[in-house]
Amino acid sequence: MVLATPVYCKYYSKSVPYEPVRLQKTNLRFYLHDILSGPNPTAVPIVRPNQFGALVAIDDPLTEGPEITSKKIGNARGMYILASQGTDLTLVLYVDLGFTTGEFNGSSLSVLSRNPILENPREMAVVGGRGRFRQASGFITVKTQYLNTTTGDAVLEYNVEVVHP
């Protein structure tokens, strides 16, 4: 038996005058460690149809310096997909860069961008954020510091420039 219950509601809308907010610019530099090898990988292939279309889930540490032993400041959580069929190895990255210490503890930046991994440096888009980075927009310049072509392990330097309220 299927029961249908009518719902009575009114469409609600309210407009108020917009008060521009004063924006600030923040620059950050940190390192992302993408580790596919070893007993505790931080990046795990979910789907691997040949190469094109490979999907990888990540929970990569973010550190102050390029060494994995540097102070951890957060995590990059999300996924990337191999989105090119040619020799121009390109990923599409969907990631939340969450900060767990310091001035931006509890805040994060949202990245949704094309990532042409053979370009060094390359640029990716910041499309939003949470906490102190609510309504953020900007870009990240990424430099590959280390890449093991056998395992896929990489250390990436992230230089971030964002504007936010």
Rank of each mutant, 00 (worst) to 15 (best):
M1K: 11
V2D: 14
V2G: 15
L3I: 12
Y8R: 14
C9V: 04
K10I: 00
Y12C: 09
Y12Q: 09
S13Q: 10
S15F: 01
S15W: 07
V16H: 07
P17E: 13
P20S: 07
V21E: 15
Q24L: 15
Q24R: 13
N27L: 06
L28N: 00
L28P: 01
R29I: 07
F30K: 02
H33R: 00
I35E: 12
G38Y: 01
A43Y: 03
P45M: 06
I46S: 12
I46C: 08
N50P: 13
Q51M: 09
F52C: 10
G53P: 03
L55H: 09
I58G: 07
I58A: 08
D60Y: 02
P61Q: 09
P61K: 13
T63R: 06
E64D: 13
G65E: 01
R77H: 05
A83E: 02
A83D: 09
S84F: 14
Q85C: 11
T87S: 15
D88R: 09
L89P: 11
L89K: 08
L91V: 01
Y94V: 13
D96Q: 00
T100W: 06
E103W: 00
S107T: 02
S108L: 09
S113P: 03
L118M: 10
E119P: 06
R122F: 13
M124V: 07
V127A: 08
G128W: 04
G128F: 08
G128E: 04
F133Q: 00
T141N: 13
V142H: 08
Y146D: 10
T151V: 12
L156V: 07
E161Q: 14
V163E: 10
H164F: 02
P165G: 15
